[in-house]
Design a protein around this nucleic acid. Structure first.
Length: 856
RNA sequence: GCCCUCUUGGCGGAACUGGUAGACGCAACGGACUUAAAAUCCGUCGUUCGCGAGGACGUGCCGGUUCGAGUCCGGCAGAGGGCACCA
């Protein structure tokens, strides 16, 4: 019996599958369809283990579903536009397209190495004009259907490089290359009007029952529906007569001690036009950056405008109006009233500027005369006080009452707002899908006519200077207005790459369609039955795709509203990060461990070991899969990736453990090879009866079918693996005797091979052949467990006395509770544990546990 | 700061829906086989007390609910993800 040689065996079967077009998917209405999709990769250079786990997981599902009788679609493509290609262009003087396609080549061969059951005929890259042409077409259709708007938004501006920076490129408020303090600039940009769809996207979450609850919750929170009120304050300023604010706590209006508006609020902007101090203040607010995290963690700052707002209910009471850095223009109305006693941010602000803190809600049981708010705002439930007509009301009653009163006075109205903002899609970059719009001084914004699509990126762009290559290209932007024919200019922005990934799953249904989608194909294949990807995409990518699919449906390109019926979010693969003395990241293979320290390989340079973080190219903490596959074979790597961590959990990559997977591969091969010569022919009729040993083997085999199948269905790949280990351990000890024993062994080995096929498909084919089969395992149906063999006749019941385990007893399954009680109380160990005390209660949980509660 | 997770032996983890904590794998240790090594096979493996039978403790920490909590509730700590221009 020769050793299993993965290097020879694996390419052989990959060729067999490829030559036979085994994974080509076609519409076939005689079978139920199953669309399994892993989030497609950005071609950053190389596949790492984190990707590998994702794709192997999807492949296990695809192969399992195929065996279970489904018509499976399992495609792959490339999320090929993005910032790293442009950075590479600047650093390495290589065109982004060339860089990207080179990476695609590398990564495709790596994926092929993994033996994935992918229909490669459907492959495409989003940077191909044949793909983005359709995206431009849909952009225009969405524009015509009212899903697109044009408005101003803030961007990070690097004043030295004259470039718009991504949030990632802003480090501690400075540009990553220039080191200049980043400013915010307003630009007019294109938006998808996702906010208009907030309610629809929110309520539809209820029906996504095959999505993880945590993702549904995150999306709900992101959309952030909140009921509240708009309140109009009359201002003392001669120019600005009134201020409208949004609040979720109108009930606390009597506790208001100030109003605050965003630095972007029109009133703030107007006041700044004649106030130098205010200009400086706003500039300082802007320096914090555009990210919510930065704004929320920054120290609260306010600028007193001197304007006063009149309290709507209290005659003569006025509130100072501040401009404050923590008020976002994008949320609500960009203006609030502050009630420090019942909002932490307002409290921090009030303490800093010496504003009054008046509690108006009191927790039950507190004395209104002595109740005060110190360092912590009281945000809980309670009864209103200090609040005139609301005194004594609960918070919800008070909200209703105050809105009613405001409406009667025409000083406000009840309203619903959402945290979700419109999706800004304009990017001042080269390597993206050009926005197919033309700006004409006479006609305004004019869409590019269909016949002129695609608007292709110019090949001869330059990357040797900062700024937008499209903007500075000498000729590209000059174009005749499609409407009046006079000279006009193209939009020089490209689309956010999230647009590319918001519909690729629909294009996979037919990547040759002349329209963006082929209606017959999308109606057949969509929605994706099982979508698999990292939890880091739980909000943006998934929400954008849900929006985009709805917009496609409205434009006639899709028949469904929800793109992903089932979602599995896998945990991230993490690894330590390493930095050399210059602070540059190092790859793990560049690092050498010496005792307690780490040094750069081949040198004595001390390496700093940083945090354990998700594998990413920018941090270099990646492990390529080939190293593992070269040594142990792809199947061992696949098996190991599925065996250790539960897939939804983050896990830190370690090299130990892969040897165990390799031993498993060898062991299965040895067991099959040693047994094969003595087995009956494939398909031999079953003997009439079985010896006890043969029967036990059959029971173990059939119980393994049940357990492994359930594990795969529930994405518990690691427990399926454990059950197969147990099965193999049992098989290794099994000594067949007689014809029945050999028949049972063939049955068991065939079950094992088919069950392990989704995870170790090359080994499975090789074993299947060794067992005398001519057909491929990939064409073999999933085994069905025989209920007569999986039935359990006896059970072990644990016995507790006062909740402490004392003994166990084997009983017939579903034995009568009275019989169990009698048997348990008769046991010597139990009598001893009771020790003569009075038995208060006996709890019998059928087939599980007996607990005897005694007097203490 | 806000939202969402996670925390079980030396390590990865198992434990259906509140019912025998530690399946399975890794590492380690002891032994068999071998001239030797590799491979393979057998065994031990949460902590602690005990010669032993057996007992006590034990699922990040503090508290609660329950006959019974890794699992449910409240609080705390640590780690990770997201926060709208990384993908």
């Amino acid at each position: 019996m020769s050793r299993y040689n993965a290097r020879e065996v694996e390419p052989k079967w990959q060729k067999t599958w490829e030559d036979g077009n085994v994974f080509r998917a076609e519409i076939d209405r005689s079978k139920p369809k199953y669309y399994v999709l892993e989030m497609f990769p950005y071609p950053s250079g190389k596949i790492h283990i984190g990707h590998g786990r994702n794709y192997v997981m999807g492949d296990v599902v695809a192969r399992f579903k195929r065996a279970a009788g489904f018509n499976v679609l399992h495609p792959m493509g490339w999320d090929a536009f993005g910032l790293p290609a442009e950075n590479a262009a600047m650093e390495q003087k290589v065109h982004p397209g060339k860089w990207t396609y080179a990476n695609v080549e590398t990564m495709k061969s790596q994926l092929k190495l993994l033996g994935l059951s992918i229909d490669w005929s459907r492959e495409f890259a989003t940077c191909d004009p044949a793909y983005y042409k359709h995206q431009q077409k849909m952009f225009i259709d969405f524009y015509k259907h009212g899903f697109v708007a044009r408005k101003e938004a803030n961007v990070n501006w690097d004043p030295v490089d004259h470039t718009v920076l991504a949030n990632e490129q802003v480090i501690d408020g400075r540009g990553w290359r220039s080191g200049a303090l980043v400013e915010q600039r307003k630009l007019t940009q294109w938006f998808f009007k996702i906010a208009d769809m907030a309610e629809e996207l929110l309520t539809a979450i209820d029906d996504l029952d095959r999505w993880p609850d945590k993702v549904r919750l995150m999306q709900r929170n992101w959309i952030g529906r909140s009921e509240g009120a708009r309140v109009t304050f009359t201002l003392t300023d001669p120019k600005h007569k009134s201020l409208e604010v949004f609040t979720t706590r109108p009930d606390t209006l009597f506790g208001a001690s100030f109003c605050a508006i965003s630095p972007d609020h029109p009133i703030a902007q107007d006041l700044a036009s004649k106030n130098k101090a205010l200009v400086d203040f706003i500039a300082e607010c802007k320096r914090i950056g555009t990210t919510e995290a930065a704004i929320e963690t920054a120290e609260k700052m306010g600028f007193d405008t001197g304007i006063k707002a009149k309290h709507p209910f209290v005659e003569g009471q006025t509130l100072p109006v501040y401009i404050a850095n923590f008020v976002l223009m994008e949320y609500g109305l960009g203006a609030i009233f502050g009630c420090p006693a019942h909002d932490q941010r307002d409290l921090d602000f009030a303490r800093k500027y010496g504003l009054p803190v008046i509690p108006v809600v009191i927790p039950d049981g507190e004395n209104p005369k002595t109740f005060t708010v110190g360092k912590e705002a009281y945000v809980g439930d309670g009864k209103l006080f200090n609040s005139d007509f609301m005194d004594g009301m609960s918070v919800p009653d008070a909200k209703r009452a105050v809105i009613k009163k405001l409406e009667a006075m025409k000083a406000g109205t009840g309203t619903v707002t959402y945290r979700l903002r419109d999706w800004g899609v304009s990017r001042q970059r080269y390597w993206g899908c050009p926005i197919p719009m033309i700006h004409c001084t006479a006609c305004g914004v004019v869409p590019v006519p269909d016949k002129d699509l695609p608007v292709k990126l110019p090949e001869d762009a330059t990357f040797d200077q900062p700024g937008s290559p499209l903007e500075r290209h000498p000729t590209w932007k000059n174009v005749a207005c499609p409407s009046c024919g006079k000279p006009a200019r193209r939009d020089t922005d490209t689309m956010d790459t999230f647009v590319d990934s918001s519909w690729y799953f629909a294009r996979f249904c037919d990547n040759t369609a002349t329209l963006p989608t082929n209606k017959e194909a999308v109606d057949y294949w969509l929605p994706v039955d099982q979508y698999i990807g990292g939890i880091e995409h739980a909000i943006l990518h998934l929400l954008y795709s849900r929006f985009f699919t709805r917009a496609m449906k409205a434009s006639g390109y899709a028949g469904v509203s929800e793109p992903f019926a089932g979602l599995f979010t896998q945990g991230m693969i993490t690894h330590e990060t390493y930095k050399d003395p210059d602070g540059k990241y190092l790859f793990p293979e560049e690092v050498e461990r010496r005792d307690d320290m780490a040094v750069k390989r081949g040198t004595n340079h001390r390496v700093t070991i940083g945090a354990v973080e998700k594998m990413s190219k920018s941090k270099k903490n990646v492990v390529p899969p080939e190293a593992v596959a070269d040594t142990y074979g792809v199947d061992a790597a696949r098996w190991f990736m599925m065996s250790d961590s539960p897939p939804e959990r983050d896990s830190e990559w370690s090299d130990s453990g892969i040897e165990g997977a390799w031993r498993f591969v060898q062991r299965v091969w040895r067991i099959v090879g040693e047994a094969a010569p003595a087995l009956p022919a494939p398909g031999a009729p079953a003997p009439a009866s079985f010896s006890p040993a043969a029967l036990e083997l059959r029971q173990v085999a059939h119980r393994t079918i049940v357990a492994v199948t359930e594990g795969l269905e529930r994405f518990r790949f690691n427990t399926s693996v454990a059950r197969m280990y147990e099965f193999v351990n049992f098989l290794a000890d099994y000594k067949p005797a007689g014809a029945d024993g050999h028949w049972a062994l063939r049955e068991a080995l065939e079950i094992l091979v088919v069950l392990m096929n989704p995870m170790v498909p090359h080994l499975a084919e090789e074993c299947w052949q060794a067992l005398g089969h001519k057909a491929l395992v990939v064409h073999t149906a999933w085994p069905k467990a025989d209920p007569a063999l999986t039935r359990q006749d006896t059970v072990t019941i644990a016995i507790q006395v006062d909740g402490k385990r004392r003994d166990e007893i084997t009983m017939a399954k579903d034995a009568d509770a009275k019989a169990v009680e009698a048997a348990v109380l008769a046991l010597e160990t139990v009598v001893k544990a009771i020790d003569g005390r009075r038995v208060k209660k006996v709890i019998i949980v059928p087939n599980r546990i007996a607990n005897i509660v005694v007097e203490r």
